[in-house]
């Protein structure tokens, strides 16, 4: 499996990351914002795994990816819990109606 160069993976990861970032900034649905974060995390994971494939003498990249997946799981759980609590409070999941930080 040596016919795809490293750069291709990096391009794919960059594209997914930017899509995720734009979604995070642009969308107003808290659930979709959380999903965008997952996209960005996945893009980073892909980069790590691709570089690990390039420096194949060790497994640091893959190990790191493993941990990131675990953190992402925790983050998604907490994030969703916050969304649920927020919905209870304000009957909405729209982020632009949530500006408690301002007051």
């Amino acid at each position: 499996m040596t016919s795809i160069p490293l750069e291709y993976y990096l391009v794919v990861a960059a594209v997914i990351f930017v899509i995720g970032a734009c979604g995070f900034l642009a969308r107003r649905n808290a659930l979709i914002v959380l999903m965008s974060i997952e996209l960005m995390l996945n893009a980073v994971n892909l980069t790590l795994v691709a570089f690990n494939r390039w420096y194949a003498s060790h497994h640091v990249g893959q190990m790191f990816t493993f941990f990131i997946i675990a953190v992402a799981a925790a983050e998604a759980a907490v994030g969703l819990a916050i969304v649920v609590a927020l919905f209870r409070l304000k009957r909405t999941v729209r982020t632009d109606s949530v500006d408690l930080l301002k007051n």
Binding site: F24, L25, D96, V98
Partner: peptide, 14 residues
């Protein structure tokens, strides 16, 4: 800038 919306702050970070 101080809208209180998290995404605004993220945009500034960007």
């Amino acid at each position: 800038f101080q809208t209180g919306r998290v995404q605004m702050y993220a945009a500034v970070m960007v």
